[in-house]
Measured scan of single mutants.
Amino acid sequence: SGVNQQQLQQLMDMGFTREHAMEALLNTSTMEQATEYLLTHP
């Protein structure tokens, strides 16, 4: 699906929903950016 499943699982383990985590990974290129994205786009 174009996203790193390991990163997706890590974000879900942090408490984010699958949909939200996927959106973040699709819009960013690193785990750090994805986390930042999730925190700034709740």
Rank of each mutant, 00 (worst) to 15 (best):
N27S: 08
Q6V: 12
S29W: 09
H41Y: 13
L39T: 11
M12H: 03
M14N: 04
R18K: 09
T30A: 03
L39N: 14
H20P: 05
M14V: 04
G15Y: 02
G15F: 03
M31A: 03
H41N: 08
Q9D: 08
N4G: 06
S1Y: 05
M31Q: 03
G2P: 12
L8G: 00
N4I: 09
N4M: 10
T28G: 03
Y37L: 06
T17C: 12
F16E: 02
T17M: 12
Q10A: 12
H20L: 15
H41A: 07
D13W: 11
L8A: 03
E19Q: 12
Q6H: 12
E23P: 01
A34Q: 01
M22F: 09
M22S: 07
L39A: 14
L38K: 02
Q33G: 07
Q7Y: 15
Q10Y: 13
Q6T: 11
E23S: 08
T28L: 03
L25G: 00
M31D: 02
M14S: 04
Y37I: 06
T17K: 14
T40W: 08
Q5Y: 12
H41G: 11
E36I: 08
Q5C: 07
G15W: 02
L26R: 12
L25V: 04
M22W: 09
Q33P: 00
L11S: 00
M12P: 00
L11I: 05
L39D: 09
H20N: 10
Q7D: 12
L11D: 00
Q7E: 10
A34H: 01
R18P: 04
H41E: 09
P42W: 15
R18T: 05
Y37R: 04
G2I: 13
M22D: 02
Y37F: 05
Q33I: 02
M22T: 14
L11Q: 00
A21E: 00
L8M: 06
G2L: 12
H20C: 11
S29T: 13
L38Q: 03
E23R: 11
Q6L: 13
H20D: 08
Q7F: 15
T40R: 08
Q10V: 12
L39G: 09
T35P: 04
L38S: 02
H41M: 15
N27W: 08
T30H: 03
T30M: 01
L26T: 08
V3H: 07
E32R: 05
M31G: 02
E32T: 06
T35H: 15
L38C: 06
L25N: 00
Y37N: 05
H41P: 05
T35A: 10
S29I: 06
A24C: 02
A24S: 03
T17V: 09
T35K: 15
R18H: 06
D13S: 15
M22P: 00
A21G: 04
A24V: 01
R18W: 08
E23C: 09
S29V: 08
E19A: 13
T17Q: 13
L26E: 08
F16P: 00
M22R: 08
M12R: 04
Y37P: 04
T17H: 09
Y37Q: 05
T30L: 02
N27G: 04
T35R: 15
L8Q: 03
F16R: 01
H41Q: 10
Y37T: 05
T30W: 02
F16C: 02
P42K: 15
M12E: 05
M22G: 04
L38Y: 03
Y37G: 04
R18M: 09
R18Q: 07
E36N: 07
T28D: 01
Q7G: 06
A34M: 02
G2S: 12
L11R: 00
P42V: 15
N4D: 11
Q5N: 10
G15V: 01
D13I: 11
T30V: 02
Q33H: 05
E36K: 07
E19F: 13
T40G: 14
L26H: 07
H20M: 15
M22L: 12
G15T: 01
Q10E: 08
A24W: 01
D13Y: 10
E32Q: 10
T17P: 14
M31W: 13
G2E: 11
A21N: 00
Q7L: 10
N27M: 14
N27I: 09
M22E: 09
R18V: 06
D13K: 13
L38F: 04
E19W: 15
L8I: 07
N4A: 08
H41R: 06
E36Q: 09
L11G: 00
T17Y: 07
P42L: 15
Q9G: 07
S29C: 09
L25I: 07
D13H: 11
A34V: 02
Q33K: 06
E32L: 06
Q7M: 13
D13P: 00
G15I: 00
M12Y: 03
E36V: 06
G15L: 03
L25A: 02
L26Y: 08
N4Y: 09
L38I: 06
E23G: 05
F16T: 03
Q5L: 14
M14G: 04
Q5H: 11
E19H: 13
L26G: 05
A34L: 04
T28P: 01
E19S: 11
M22I: 14
R18L: 07
T35L: 15
H20Q: 11
Q6N: 11
F16W: 09
S1R: 09
M14Y: 07
E32W: 06
A21P: 00
M14E: 03
S1G: 13
L25T: 02
T28Y: 06
H41F: 12
Q10T: 14
N4H: 08
L39H: 14
Y37C: 06
T28A: 04
H41V: 07
G2Y: 11
P42R: 13
T28C: 07
S29D: 14
P42A: 15
T30N: 10
T40I: 07
A21H: 00
A34N: 01
T30R: 02
S1A: 14
L26C: 10
L11C: 01
L8T: 03
S29E: 14
A34S: 01
T35S: 05
A24F: 01
